[in-house]
Amino acid sequence: MTTKLFSPITIKGVTLKNRIVMAPMCMYSSHNEDGHLQNWHRTHYTSRAVGQVGLIIVEATAVTPQGRISPQDLGIWSDEHTDGFKELVNLMKEHGAKTGIQLAHAGRKAVLEGEILAPSAIAFNEKSQTPKEMTIAEIKETVEAFKKGAERAAKAGFDVIEIHGAHGYLINEFLSPLSNKRTDEYGGTAENRYRLLREVIEAVKTVWTGPLFVRVSAHDYHEDGLTPEDYIVFAGWMEEQGVDLVDVSSGAVVPAHIHVYPGYQVKYSETIKNGAGIPTGAVGLITTGIQAEEILQNDRADLVFLARELLRDPYWPRTAAKELGVTIEGPKQYERGWV
């Protein structure tokens, strides 16, 4: 039996052996608030490579110390971080996985001591710190930090870079009218709210020639917020800028009740893919091989991103292959138990 899930795909010269992607998930495991990788990260990510995941995207990695979600986040704001990532990349590639990293800035959702930054001085909720509205100079500094992060990611040998524009973090805060109340060139119209992401993409592409993904929250779940139709416009602009794939998630820019069910975000991926003509990744309570195969066979997405299911089962590709009735190659060391 041939399946789409286990068929290779080539994106800008990088060939993934299957369509299974490990979505970035924060581990909050860096010690000493220095942003450095620990043995936990080496074990965690390499295990999924052994498990035959096609592309592994390292968790949200802060481009500035101020841009961390927590003091335990990984960082890529210093040249001192590069060697650790180079080691991790090599460990994953030994087992045939392609490697990615998500570059991020937490914005108003940073839980840190001291000042935090956002497009507007509006707290996420009543328990959150009120951020400082960014100056133009601070915006330019942040764009430069994304560029430097991308430069370090390239030196570390990553195959893919993903820009984190979702889940209520800084870039998402600029995109959504719920969190962006600016009256300058970074606020108001859709074009203005997109400006920060546009500048980040432009800056990253000056130092990065490989596949470039952007993760978005395609629905704000608020009557005055953004919907997938709004993201068709944004995704069209991304495509014009040379973004290769939009990783479609949703929510978290403002507190909201979200009705979740298996594959609840796949329809947003489908809407953006069909509306903007750009490849997409689907994510959100995707747990079985049959479910993943349906998404791909019906052209609802080009890649399937798994998160919690890969925490539960590092060898999920094998589980999915058995469910779909196909055989995939595993590590030689596991041959006696893999089939």
Rank of each mutant, 00 (worst) to 15 (best):
K98G: 04
Q297T: 14
K205V: 10
G325A: 10
Q72M: 12
V254K: 07
D184V: 13
P314M: 12
L226D: 04
R336D: 11
A153H: 12
D184W: 13
G236S: 10
H44S: 13
I290K: 13
E185Q: 13
L311N: 12
H95R: 08
G330N: 05
L88G: 06
S249D: 08
A203T: 03
V243A: 05
Q129T: 15
V246E: 05
N274R: 14
N18Y: 08
P255R: 03
T206M: 08
L170W: 08
R193V: 09
K147P: 02
A190C: 03
E199W: 13
G75T: 03
L197E: 02
E323S: 07
T319P: 05
R300S: 08
L112Q: 05
N39F: 07
L5V: 12
T271S: 09
G330C: 03
S70W: 01
K332V: 10
D302S: 08
I9F: 01
E202C: 02
K332M: 07
G330Y: 01
S269V: 11
E240F: 13
P228L: 06
A154N: 14
G67I: 09
P255N: 09
S7V: 03
I11M: 04
A282Y: 11
I163N: 07
P228R: 13
A166T: 02
E329L: 11
Y264W: 09
L324R: 02
G263P: 05
Y264M: 02
G96Y: 02
T189Q: 03
A154W: 06
H44N: 12
M134R: 08
Y334V: 10
A256P: 00
T209W: 00
A137C: 07
I295Y: 10
G188H: 02
R19S: 03
M25F: 10
E240L: 13
A97N: 01
G13V: 06
K322F: 06
E309L: 01
V14K: 13
L74Q: 03
I258A: 01
E270C: 06
L117R: 03
W77K: 00
K267T: 06
R318L: 14
D299N: 15
L37P: 03
A307L: 07
I20W: 08
A301I: 07
R300C: 07
D230G: 07
W338V: 10
L306A: 04
L88R: 09
P8E: 09
G84T: 11
Y45Q: 06
F213H: 10
H81K: 00
